[in-house]
Design a protein around this nucleic acid. Structure first.
Lengths: 219, 219, 219, 219
DNA sequence: TATGAATGAGCGTTCATTCAT
DNA sequence: TATGAATGAACGCTCATTCAT
């Protein structure tokens, strides 16, 4: 249940300055996250959410005009965070590249940041992954944000390490895709596809990082 | 529309020997695949399927007791195929390992087989990925099949190439996970997450195979 | 209950040629008319209609997409009929005027036609009067039909009898308004405002016709 | 907006002596009148009224126990006024008849009084007309008041002018009905049915009075 | 085999009303 | 006095499923 504590924090960060969430509203969000991630958005009824949250069904609609608005309000702050620290909008490009001395340092930083975050917010991440392709409201801002703020910076880092001769001379787009696929794929495998298996997640992450560096470095 | 042609083949293979599917039933399957993959199982109504298929709503329930049965009947043959040729139940272990002379040959074969298959049946694959975690009926036989018939053989192959010194000395489970993650992650990326981008999918697949071999081989 | 028999006829005239109304649908219309006219459209619940009609609530929505569509389907054929026989669209203007030899004949015909009709369909007339100002779907075609097909012909009749010196030399618009107001007002009074009083409706109608002719004729 | 000014006056007269209406309460009444007359009582939500009035929803129920009580409090003072000055309860019969020297004077006075009043309070009149048949609370006192205080006096006036030979020898009930129907029908036509048409309402009223006198007077 | 009208449970949402503040 | 969060019954409507034809 401690993960829900942290989800409250996540969502409350969105309402910066004042945390203006009533207790009932937090109960609703908590219940919605739990059931959405278990059964999927479309298969979850507002009646079910209300019961689990211990509120009247009408109370949900006092806070969110529609069920979909509830979904968006849960998932949106997560999306911002996922594209978060490394690619902050106001971050200067030129400085950025210099931040990491080696490609390994970059990958290690990227992966472990995402690892901690996803581990904490695994239920919301599952909702995001499941629902993003069905709801334009979720997909469009995410895609735009990536294109406008993340893509160029990410590409520059790759070019930087290619110039330094640290990584293979593939198309940056392909390398970017392989990095994201490998890290995200691993996290999804560990937390969503095979959550019951008793993985030593930390050591799996380490292996994945090694694999990634090995796979992209010039021999 | 040619992909639906091939889907009919896929499903008809399940009803081996006699292909006892009426034209109406094929229309239903076709329509269901299209809408399920677009909107998700729970958000698709049988009325919608019936309309798109050009049949009466009752006709669906003449062929499938429930809506879920329709889903299972669409997705199940695909699952069998996905775990398919390489790991067929009646395939002798000892022979199997000998089939591939190098690790690269194994990976290349595994990846390109899955690539062709998924490309053909992308809509059903999407349904499978989206729905598998919500329906025990889909997940359990898949997991059992993997554990009972695929896991050991796959592990043996890995051990075989580790003994030969071709690949790194990691835990076979981890290596298996990295292989599956990388191949599936790539295919999902290319076909589902970024289907609009104009990837040269063949060359992306080649890069992925190179990356995988590079990442797992001893330097 | 015989009035509902005639309402079925009214509504079925709309679906000319084949009377394709199932028994259940007629029950729904019957129940809706009764409750709409008693409590008003907005205060009537579909659940209530279903119960009175002896059908499931879903059945209503199989025949009518929305509650409002049910209202429109009930009221629309009445509107056509109300502007009906005297002012049929395909009726030639020049012939029309000649139909009536005296103003009294015209008024008497107009009034008694409307009288019989409204008496038969009083419940639907009440619904029409109550709801027309709240629903554009009802008002607009009614107003257009009047302007395009009735107004000119009606005016010509008035001008005709003014030329003949039978009626006063007021503005035709005003005379038209007085005629409609007096006839409709009387019918509304007798059937809707004071339905419980034991009027001899036939003799009241006669008095009204006399009053109307008296009021408009030159002394 | 000036009409609402006058409505406040109207309603405040009901609370005679002390005008104990807070500003918020007046805002509520104002908003309720506007929306009730636009959409009808049943189709208006208290939430909507509260928003338009700029008060909290709870505030409405601090002043009125139910939504219906709000309706009654708006419409009731109007009803009293409508049966107003001519037929005041404490008015002596015998004096009354003498008040008017001619039938025309009576009609002219009756009509123009109602004309000014309805013009001022058209929105509330519309609510009254629309809702009176659905709510006993509105209908019953109105009917009783008419029967007990207005009917006899009105009848006496008619008999008085019949004896004088000024008007036709019809049943007084019928004549009363024709007078009320013609005046009310005209006012309803001008203000409610065809409010957009640019009538010269004053001259229409004059024509109506002439028509009424003409129609009822002996030739 | 196929239909499509009928069902009634359940859906997301709105409602008038209550009550702690 | 006024608020507005909370309520839960009721709303219009959709759903998967049934069944007589």
């Amino acid at each position: 249940m401690t993960q829900y504590e942290s989800l409250k924090e996540l969502i409350m960060l969105d309402a910066n300055e004042e945390a203006k969430f009533s207790e009932k509203q937090l109960k609703i969000i908590e219940a919605a996250i739990e059931i959405f991630s278990e059964k999927g958005f479309a298969a979850t009824s507002t009646n079910e959410i209300a019961k689990k949250a211990g509120v009247a069904e009408g109370t949900i609609f006092r806070h969110y005009k529609t069920k979909k608005e509830l979904l968006v309000s849960i998932v949106s702050p997560l999306m911002a965070k996922l594209l978060g620290p490394h690619f902050a909008k106001d971050f200067a490009n030129e400085v950025f590249e210099l931040k990491y001395e080696t490609f390994e340092e970059f990958i290690r930083n990227l992966a472990s940041n995402r690892y901690e975050f996803i581990k904490k917010h695994i239920a919301v991440v599952k909702i995001l992954i499941q629902e993003i392709s069905y709801h334009k409201e979720l997909k469009e801002p995410y895609v735009r944000l990536f294109k406008e703020h993340v893509y160029e910076k990410f590409k520059n880092i790759i070019l930087h390490f290619q110039k330094k001769g640290e990584i293979v001379d593939e198309s940056p787009d392909t390398i970017m895709r392989l990095i994201i696929t490998t890290i995200m794929g691993t996290l999804v495998s560990l937390f969503l596809v095979l959550p019951d298996n008793e993985w030593d997640t930390e050591s799996e992450l380490e292996s994945t990082i090694q694999f990634l560096i090995n796979g992209l470095s010039v021999k």
